[in-house]
Write a protein that binds this DNA or RNA. Structure first.
Lengths: 218, 218
DNA sequence: CGGCAAGTTGATGTTTGTCAAGTGGGGTGG
DNA sequence: CCACCCCACTTGACAAACATCAACTTGCCG
């Protein structure tokens, strides 16, 4: 039940309607693109297992990671505005996603108020999350950015019933740097320093938060 | 007609329905807050005249400008996810906004497909715009950020039928710096340098773009 | 188990932030 | 309507944070 796509906040009688909508699941292998910038937009997705990153490219070719999606989170909203995707979505590990056809979802939202509510909140959440990330990029120091990122992932893990204290971050240091508007070296150094200060415990992609309050205070 | 709130892309027979929805307009004076972070979310807004900035505050008090809204643009979507606003909206000059009650709009969206489509696109556009701004903040140099900002405002002016070549930017240098993740001094220096290079012509808040291609090439 | 991508760490350079001083313009009150 | 005052803006000198370049190590994937 926890694993269900686009979950949370639907009353029991509406679940079947949503389930009928989800035609299929799709596996996406590590490094593979679920969709690319410019692709036609037909579906929203929910991460069923694994994790993906979203990236956006500047015209000169520079790419930036604009988001990280963990299991249970929604994906693909960047396609709604223009009928084609503005971002690319790439699997960070072998993953599976549920496919939610957008036209059908729209129809359902017109029939069922709580579905409409749910979709609106989903979009609203992404708007707020991105605004918060703009804050991170615009106002925080490198240390603060890394700390904020770890706390964000930790909290999202907790929300989905996983451990908030330790997790595998499948992004590379370069991905993290890109997402945080800094370089892979700075991320690496910062994590090392956090470890020396006893805030975290890192072993490559595995991260354990040792001193939560300390991290918050960075 | 151009001035109508939440315009563009509605068929003639739907306009009256939307107009019935817009209960009222509201003046907001320069420096006054239309809403503040934490305020209950009841309405969306459309800027009828003037301009506003949206800001978000970190817990330690640091504030960052997260958006600029010009006449014709929508405002308030940051409240949908949590039933209270995540950002504050402050008028940059004496302005007026149209008030669109959200509950009523939701109902209308369930009745009229094109209204639903319009609202979705509005939210989708903001998602994409914010992602693009994350790119700006994360990947571009100070010069590139300022250039990108000027081009963005120019383009938005053009879209709404105003001059893309010259405009009054009612933000202060500090607001611009905050929005661009830099300082007011850097913004000021950059604008001066652009002027010396013959890219723009600035006189305080008035800006004229002299060499569009040059700006794009920064 | 071998090879290569990812990660770590150090030395150095550049961009941008910070502090400071001075100028200018617009709004308010006389 | 004018003048004053304050806030915004400009510009310079200096400092710090972070990027860049480089060499080396680790560990993961095939």
């Amino acid at each position: 039940m926890r694993q269900l796509c686009m979950p949370q906040g639907l009353s029991p009688d509406e679940l079947p309607k949503l389930e009928a909508l989800i035609c299929s699941a799709r596996p996406v292998r590590r490094g593979e693109a679920l969709y690319r910038s410019g692709d036609a937009f037909d579906n929203l997705y929910a991460v069923r297992s694994g994790s993906l990153k979203t990236t956006m490219a500047h015209r000169d070719g520079r790419e930036q990671v604009t988001g990280l999606r963990l299991a249970g989170e929604a994906l693909g909203l960047d396609g709604i505005s223009d009928d084609k995707h503005a971002c690319s979505a790439t699997a960070l590990e072998d993953s599976t996603v549920c496919i939610v056809p957008y036209v059908a979802l729209k129809r359902l939202c017109r029939e069922v108020g709580s579905m409409q509510e749910r979709l609106h909140k989903l979009m609203g959440e992404q708007i707020v999350r991105e605004a918060a990330q703009m804050m991170v990029l615009g106002s925080l120091s490198a240390d603060e950015r890394v700390a904020a990122f770890l706390l964000d992932v930790s909290e999202r893990n907790a929300q989905r019933g996983y451990s908030s204290a330790e997790f595998n971050l499948r992004m590379t240091r370069e991905d993290m740097g890109s997402y945080l508007g800094t370089t892979l070296e700075t991320v690496s150094r910062t994590l090392s320093r956090f470890q020396k200060r006893g805030l975290i415990d890192t072993q490559g992609k595995f991260i354990r938060i040792v001193d939560l309050e300390g991290l918050r205070a960075v």
